[in-house]
Design a protein around this nucleic acid. Sequence first.
DNA 1: ATGAAAGCGCTAACAG
DNA 2: CTGTTAGCGCTTTCAT
Lengths: 346, 346
Amino acid sequence: MVRLVDIARQAGVSVMTVSRVLRDAPDIAASTKARVQSIAQQLGYVPDVMAQAMRTRNTRLLAIVAPDTSDPVTSRIVLALAERAHDLGYDLLVSQSRHQIDREEACLRRVLARRVEGLFLCPIPRLDPSAPIYLELKQRGVRVVALGPKPPFCEPFVSVQADDALASSKVTRHLLALGHRRIAFLAGPSTSPAAQSRFEGYRRALREAGLETDDRLVFRAGETVEEGARATVQLIDERATATAIQAVSDLVAMGAARVLLDQGLRLPHDVSLAGYGNIPFSEVFRVPLTTVRQPKYQLGLAAMTCMQALLLGAPASSHQLPAELVIRASTGPAPPGDVSTARCHG
Amino acid sequence: MVRLVDIARQAGVSVMTVSRVLRDAPDIAASTKARVQSIAQQLGYVPDVMAQAMRTRNTRLLAIVAPDTSDPVTSRIVLALAERAHDLGYDLLVSQSRHQIDREEACLRRVLARRVEGLFLCPIPRLDPSAPIYLELKQRGVRVVALGPKPPFCEPFVSVQADDALASSKVTRHLLALGHRRIAFLAGPSTSPAAQSRFEGYRRALREAGLETDDRLVFRAGETVEEGARATVQLIDERATATAIQAVSDLVAMGAARVLLDQGLRLPHDVSLAGYGNIPFSEVFRVPLTTVRQPKYQLGLAAMTCMQALLLGAPASSHQLPAELVIRASTGPAPPGDVSTARCHG
DNA sequence: ATGAAAGCGCTAACAG
DNA sequence: CTGTTAGCGCTTTCAT
């Protein structure tokens, strides 16, 4: 490994001079500079970032801790973060908490031990409102940007997220505009703030349209295709006369679609279906799915912008980015003669 | 920041003693140990991995450099790598080369500057057979595990990949077994070794069945849905009388499906279609797609196993993991009376 | 069982 | 413009 001393010896100057040249510090004779640079080049010198960090206290290291960076949303965010980080001269550490609270804690300890300058955190939903490790992050002055909906115990952190409630209400309004009055909702896990927000958006839109949420139209699904399918079977079993179904996520919607299509129902002729999230390929789904496009990459960029502010010691504020309704083939006008619609009108 | 000295002072012992305790080194009085541990705990001591690394030369840092870690395959691999790395006491750096050669080089320089102990590399296909930066990696003794098909300039590195040629020939054999004789192939970019291997597998299966590759049935598609669609339009325009179409990837297959379905053709009644890669949701595609399931997570695990060997200075060998044919609804028996089939039989 | 000295590779602070 | 000194937080080596 080539060190500064090696170059210094070769060039017949002090280590300090070499250090200055290689950092482009001022007050160096042009001739010296050229000579040192050439020798460094020739020897194939590669600076030791660790040693620099040790001295300057700048690790130029950021980290993201998330339950699963392979999911379509997070992986796009990681892409944006790593890309921007690189351009800003930082490196990005990736750590998976696998939805396990103690694993998340272990990841965070690692991150502390690496003396990262900033942390992007997708917190695991917890039941317990107190989270000592998060307090510790705060205490130690780690700059934290929370990604996604912020649970109560993340209050002190800046956050960046899509406006789930708003986007979800856009979906509901779209269905209402198509004449649907009985819109079922396939809900996500109650521990997930994102899922909650989407349900909130649905309720809000209904309320604004002068309708009340009918509990018999709300089904607990979950996060997976399977759970979506199960909830839809239940919906059918219970003879819930909905003309439209709004799902908490595209995955759940796909499960619903499977069941509906298997029943011989046509989308959107017999029933409309909407998802949320615009996962890749929801476009090329059996019936191209009306959904919400989350600005994933933009979320990453926004998060990094926040981080830059924090790194400069500037105040940073949380952001809600608007998500966009994408109307495709799975939603259409409500069947005109539908009993339930009539009833609602009456 | 609490350092060893701080603990030492509190405990009335030397820094060395504290260091020993915290590393579980032998020859420490039980009483001292207990006292130091308790004080460390109480002060919230977090070791400085950088400083440790500086002294011990073990950075406990690994890195992955890939064109785009958000693609479905790579993101799963990253998941496996980060997870295993964590369990082995390593952290993982993620760096995106964005399909740009000079960016890849910049990423690799960063990785060198961080003194990572090992590197997972998804190389960008290059036309030029020489790649100085890769030679440098080799020279500097960085342990490298190549992911995916290994281009010629990566020869010196251990690699882990799915056996694309074999899996691709499984697809072709499946179509042959269904009675298809005129099987079109939608090929990928000629620079991609993976795409090449898949084409090879197709040819090999045909040859083994006593058939020759008909160049008029091979269409250059690419990597995207769009390119798949374009190639399929071309296929139709040229009146290529194929009864089955094998695509280099699921994305390309989806493009093909769009065109075929738009033409009013039924899958698999009129024409069979197979993809490759088993991207999420190819199962819930308009017509569930026959495809090849790549053992993505397993690839990550295998790569890490190789890395462990390298880190121990042990020899490691390259691995080809078998990929599995997944038969779904898009492939079926060849239309019995088909002219082309008849012609082949005659 | 514990401590003192030295140094990993680099740079801040000060001197000349 | 260039060099000297000191030290970042830790551990190796050698002493006691």
